[in-house]
Write a protein that binds this DNA or RNA. Sequence first.
DNA 1: CGATAATCGAGACGGTACGTCGAGTCTTTAG
DNA 2: CTAAAGACTCGACGTACCGTCTCGATTATCG
Lengths: 200, 200, 200, 200
Amino acid sequence: MHSSRAKEAGGAPRGRPRDASRDDALRKATLEVMAEVGYRALTMDAVAARAKAGKATIYRRWESKLELVIDTCNELVSRSVPEPDTGSVAGDLREFLLGYADFLTGPSGKAAQALVGELPHEPELATAFRDSFLTGQRGMLRRILERGAERGEINRHAPLGMVNELAGATLTYRLMLTGEPIDEAFVDKLLEQALLPLLN
Amino acid sequence: MHSSRAKEAGGAPRGRPRDASRDDALRKATLEVMAEVGYRALTMDAVAARAKAGKATIYRRWESKLELVIDTCNELVSRSVPEPDTGSVAGDLREFLLGYADFLTGPSGKAAQALVGELPHEPELATAFRDSFLTGQRGMLRRILERGAERGEINRHAPLGMVNELAGATLTYRLMLTGEPIDEAFVDKLLEQALLPLLN
Amino acid sequence: MHSSRAKEAGGAPRGRPRDASRDDALRKATLEVMAEVGYRALTMDAVAARAKAGKATIYRRWESKLELVIDTCNELVSRSVPEPDTGSVAGDLREFLLGYADFLTGPSGKAAQALVGELPHEPELATAFRDSFLTGQRGMLRRILERGAERGEINRHAPLGMVNELAGATLTYRLMLTGEPIDEAFVDKLLEQALLPLLN
Amino acid sequence: MHSSRAKEAGGAPRGRPRDASRDDALRKATLEVMAEVGYRALTMDAVAARAKAGKATIYRRWESKLELVIDTCNELVSRSVPEPDTGSVAGDLREFLLGYADFLTGPSGKAAQALVGELPHEPELATAFRDSFLTGQRGMLRRILERGAERGEINRHAPLGMVNELAGATLTYRLMLTGEPIDEAFVDKLLEQALLPLLN
DNA sequence: CGATAATCGAGACGGTACGTCGAGTCTTTAG
DNA sequence: CTAAAGACTCGACGTACCGTCTCGATTATCG
């Protein structure tokens, strides 16, 4: 998504090279503005002003507000949610759910939420969004469940894919749509009443 | 949400009365524009032009673009999803999930999706949104489950609330976030692998 | 006007010396762009691109767009208008007026015209402009009239300074302001009805 | 030059009519900004800000900075220079020259001067400019000379058209190009050495 | 020779203004 | 008082230039 100069093609990159530190400053500013006013009210002018950058410097790197925001989030999602490994499926799921809830509650999560409304009309965004926010989530869950299966904690006929989807769906549903928090009480109830029963 | 004149004060409403047909024309225009270009790109001017109305006529009725869209959707959600009653929980759930999927795939659904991103920054919108889209959904699900419980189809210790939430979460997660369809095959798998087991 | 390195201080100029050929290329490009789009629409980027030069190469030589244009014109005015010497005041004036009209109609003349608007707000420009375009003009006219006086063609009480000014004024007035051409017919009329009578 | 709604065609002008007071406010702001920073440095934003108007309100009335400035000047030129009538050609010419010099020295004159550079590249501007600044000037001069002829002050073979042109040319040449003032001393010299001799 | 220094083209940089567009409000005529 | 029409202020859009800067690469002088 983030545009890159074609410099792999061998030829020397002529002219002054892009200042990589501006990328970071701009992403930082984007995240700050987004956290303060949301996606809709985020303006390129505000981002540029906060990063002490010209607008052209933004448009040189990202084609639109959407791309800027997506890229800003992508940069964060991977490093923000630690992969849990407590030794048990229940523990891992518990930690994952709480950890991801934290992430979604923070600025990146709000940014992600703002993008949801654009998905139907922007196929490229949809792809990028799913790659960043959903694939990572599902991957962690899958690995958690697979480790549990290897340890024999899980019924070999358990519908792992379905449990994976239910867990992810519940996370985003609560945090993005209903606005109800994902706290320890709810996580325990979710495990007790739904996920663990389906795994046994 | 829909603003009303202060006519409770007794006096007869002097002057030309509001043309009620304009409400419908405007909502219709709103829905059409929304379906064509999405929420972001919907402009008040476009709605006014399509309804052959002045912008003031819109603002006399709704305070903002957001309210206009919410109200337009509200009007539709209630009449759009028929409450199923097949005689069995499995059948009802099946029909409900497919019916709601249809609704969310249509213009109103896309409108609803567009609003998700605004929820964190607009508390009033959040309330209205949840009242319209989530409460209706949960209500139908609750009634389906209750009827099943009355008919003795459901284990008396089954976590009905949790099943309700899982069903709703899966619906919106698929349709709004992952973009995967909710077709008969998936509904059957969802029932088979998750919902029905949890009810027994 | 044209900036020069401080090399009078004795020591040899270290580093790579300036490429004198770039001066000409840049002036040439400036004149071309100016002739095509005028002064207002002339951009430094366009000049640099046309001369296949970097912008810094321009700014190393001239401090601003204005200086660049002035210098470009200065270079031309002196070599562009040949000093007439037909043997008679009438003949010299005739040739001078037609010759200067040609010059002012060409690219340099248009450039000069473009600078007129800047004169009130840019004192340095005003000085340079007058030195290049007006002084040269007046000098030629003065020498023409002086030669005529020496030859006894002119009444010794004739107001030479005033005739000089009238001739110059008519030239620029017609060419820059009214847009009417200075052709042979007009020159003859001007001589017949105004200049020659005042000289006798 | 100043765009006008087609309302002569009879039909009632629907919608909110243009606020005529904005025209004046904008012209006033234009003149102020122009007087302060000149034509080149005059920006639409500055004019809009000073008039507390939106930029769209400007562009609804004038297509460009140039048109705005021209129209602003036009409004002034006619009312700014009083037509002299002292009873003698010499007196009238004297007053006219001094009066027009005052006008050209003021903000409108500087604006006019700024436009000179654009004339070669903008034919419409050239026409408008000449209509406003030159035609008015020539008309006054012509009437002055005609009245003198009627009074018998002028040789019946005097080249009135040429004198007219010389007077106008000298005015603008001095004020716009050489920057020398047109004061009483110069006016008297001009009359004595050139204009009056040509009229007798 | 190598080190130093100013040049070159190229183009990114922070800014400012551009001319357009949309929001929400206001002001007209008509009913 | 409502209707359609459209002008109003405000502010963001994405682009274009400004004049400065930073690259790699070139070309001169100096030690």
